[in-house]
Simulated assay, not measured.
Amino acid sequence: MKLLIQLLLLLTAVSSCKKDKTTDATVSNPMSVKAAATYAVVTEQNVNYCQGLRHQTLNSASYSTMDLKLDVYKPANNSKKKPAIVFIHGGGFVGGDKSDVNIVNLANYFAARGWVAFSINYRLLSDRGTVPAAWIQYAQSSVPLVDQAQFIAMYPAHRDAKAAMRWLITNADRYDIDTGYITVGGGSAGAVIATTLGITTTTDFTTELSLSNDPSLATTNLSSNNYTVKTILDFWGSGVGVTSINNVYGYQRFDRTDAPIMIAHGTADSTVAYTNAIELQNIYTSTGAAYKLYTLLNRGHGAWDAVVNGKKLEELSFDFIVEQQKLIVE
């Protein structure tokens, strides 16, 4: 994954034409959350958020349809408007699951303080999800052979995460969510996806396929694309998802409207090099979008127990979200 990320960051394409990313949701009233764990957490597991194709071979006419699932962590309170936070597991687009203990811990941490938290699954390399021809052609012409399969797997993973976001918007009333306060976050590959969600347009990683290419798109709430990600939590990830779609389609999605991002990355990370954090920092500095970088000295990949200035990652994340979204802490 390290080689793939470094290659793609060097190949970033620049285009002078860029679409508006989202139509911003209206924030009518200040949102309040709790400083300490206050609410019991009610869990709803294995909720279907859409379907996706699983091909026998890459884009083969022989395929099956699989359900894509997420878990919900709800605070047991009577508030009719709650902020939302979506967590995405890592695993290099090859493995991992929404039940990852670190993701579950984060979901419970935030739900106990008033957020509705979600942990999503998405298709992995072995699922062989549908991939646009242009994405495959780019992989075969510009990505080292050893990384091509992983690069190809990135597309359906991102497509699914976009579908999860549209499901959230469709079901906002069901979970008493105020869609003006949405955070996305994850670790490693999950952080790559989260970063993409907060930077690309709401239709990227969706409209590159048609219903004839992928009939399961009809299950993905395609009309619910009016949302804005307000903050991103990037734990040892990168901007490779954004860079990839820029390169394949000639987009330039990085600009000052990008969601504020908190980056936590170890200097001794041998899986996703620390230079990827610096690359994102430099991009955010150049565009003027808000960011916070926490350098985890001498820490490697997956440093979930990291402490910076006496605070754990979940506490740093809490502070960042509160600051950027101007939440009231009770």
Results as ranks from 00 to 15, higher is better:
V229Q: 05
L68H: 00
A84D: 01
Y227T: 03
V116Q: 09
T23Y: 15
T203D: 08
A303K: 10
M262Q: 10
K82E: 09
W167L: 05
W304Y: 14
V101P: 00
Y227D: 09
S64E: 15
E44R: 12
A273T: 11
R128C: 10
A273G: 11
F318S: 05
D97C: 14
D67L: 07
Y122P: 09
G186H: 02
A264M: 12
R159F: 06
L3F: 12
R256S: 13
F235C: 06
K230R: 13
I152R: 01
K74V: 11
T231H: 11
I103S: 01
L233S: 07
T130C: 09
T12A: 12
H265G: 08
L68I: 07
A139S: 12
G239A: 04
P30Q: 09
V94N: 11
V104Q: 12
L11P: 00
A164L: 13
A36C: 07
D24C: 10
T130G: 04
L313F: 10
T275P: 06
A268Y: 04
L124G: 07
S188A: 05
Q324E: 15
K81M: 11
T207C: 01
V322Y: 04
V240A: 09
G266Y: 00
N102I: 14
A40E: 15
N108A: 08
G114A: 06
G90H: 03
D97F: 13
A277V: 06
N29D: 10
Y181V: 00
A259Y: 03
A306K: 10
R253C: 08
C50L: 03
S28H: 12
A149M: 11
N77K: 06
T170N: 13
S15H: 11
F110E: 05
V101C: 15
I85C: 10
N59Q: 04
Y73R: 05
A40K: 14
D234F: 04
L327V: 00
V27P: 13
T65M: 03
A112N: 07
N221F: 08
M262E: 07
I169F: 05
R113S: 04
N108L: 02
A268F: 05
T206M: 14
Y122W: 07
S141Q: 13
K34V: 04
T220S: 10
I193M: 06
A149T: 02
V329M: 02
F110G: 02
N171K: 04
N247E: 13
S141A: 12
S317W: 09
V240D: 01
S60C: 07
I152Y: 01
D71R: 06
A61I: 15
N46D: 11
D176A: 12
Y39N: 13
A40S: 14
H55W: 01
L58Q: 04
Q56S: 12
I177E: 07
A303N: 10
A191F: 06
L10Q: 14
A306C: 01
I232Q: 00
T196V: 14
F87I: 00
L209S: 01
N29E: 13
A76T: 11
A40Q: 13
L53N: 06
G310N: 02
W115Y: 15
G266A: 10
A25H: 13
I136V: 09
S119C: 09
K74A: 15
V143G: 00
Q150C: 13
E314G: 01
A189R: 04
D160I: 01
T203G: 00
N105R: 15
A37G: 09
D234Q: 07
T43H: 09
A107D: 07
V94L: 09
